[in-house]
């Protein structure tokens, strides 16, 4: 018998093993839900599959009676719009900062300490300031995500620029490159796959800040809906919403990974 650490599961058993915990959770949930509903048919804490279905149909397929919009889609659109805008701005800031401080020593001396301090501020602690400064509209929510996400992208990209072997920068100069040409033809193209990677890693916290901002002050959005429905203990809608958010997060991560592999075949080994 080989040691446990040397035993590899086959393809089929690996698949079964990965499905097992999910199945277990579903079984435990359904049993608990049945038990509670048998006790009290009006229990709202662990809804049955039937009431999930009803709630999903109502949220995702039927227009809202008051607004005429389909609730799930309008919430998703509102949230994704905020998230994408904020992440795009953060990525752009991160790219500019990372390149400027990674390549040009003067920028590094001037900016890096500031970013190091700013990135230590807990973004949620300055959410009130954002609300005061930018009002309760879209701007303050987007600013919160940017403040939460941009510093870590900036610092990550700064490190990735420094990772580029110095030999390459010297070589480019012996090929006649100016500072701008080194940035444009050597540093930037090598940084783009790393930017996608940095964005992937920060998407989780971007969602966190998005939902936090929506929970506190919003009129639409996935986070807003969850926190609104909390008042009615509407678990039959909240749980599908959480699952939907998880799916969106998973899909965006997957999409970025595929995009990175397609666009930058030369970086495949990393």
């Amino acid at each position: 018998m080989r040691r446990l650490l040397n035993q590899q599961p086959g393809r089929f058993s690996a698949l079964c093993l990965s499905a097992l915990p999910f199945l277990l959770i579903i079984i435990v949930y359904l049993t608990a839900s049945d038990l509670r509903l048998a006790d009290n048919p009006n229990d709202k804490l662990l809804p049955s599959l039937g009431s999930f279905k009803e709630a999903i149909v109502q949220a995702a397929l039927e227009p809202n009676r008051r607004t005429g919009e389909i609730q799930l889609w309008s919430d998703t659109a509102a949230s994704l719009q905020r998230l994408l805008l904020a992440v795009a701005i953060s990525a752009l800031l991160g790219l500019m900062f990372g390149i400027a401080t990674g390549v040009i020593p003067y920028f590094n001396a001037g900016l890096s300490p500031l970013i190091a301090v700013l990135s230590m501020i807990p973004p949620l602690a300055i959410l009130p300031i954002l609300f005061i400064l930018f009002g309760l509209g879209e701007l303050s929510k987007i600013m919160l995500i940017i403040l939460g996400v941009a510093p870590s992208i900036m610092r990550e990209l700064h490190l990735r620029v420094i990772d580029i072997p110095h030999e390459q920068l010297i070589k480019a100069q012996t090929l006649g490159a100016s500072t701008w040409q080194v940035i444009w033809r050597v540093v930037l193209p090598q940084l783009l796959p790393r930017l996608l990677n940095a964005v992937r890693l920060t998407l989780g916290s971007a969602w966190l800040f998005l939902i936090a901002a929506e929970a506190i002050a919003a009129e639409s959005g996935l986070g807003y809906r969850i926190f609104l429905l909390r008042r009615y203990l509407a678990m039959d809608t909240i749980l599908p919403y959480v699952a939907w958010i998880t799916l969106l997060a998973f899909l965006s991560d997957y999409l970025l990974r595929v995009l990175s592999r397609r666009l930058f075949p030369w970086a495949a080994k990393t």
Binding site: P165, Q168, K171, A172, T174, A267
Partner: peptide
């Protein structure tokens, strides 16, 4: 460094992208 002097290092002096 400038174009009047070329360099070949032991490693890392080609552009991977």
């Amino acid at each position: 460094p400038g174009p009047d002097r070329g360099i070949v290092f032991q490693r890392y002096s080609v552009f991977p992208h």
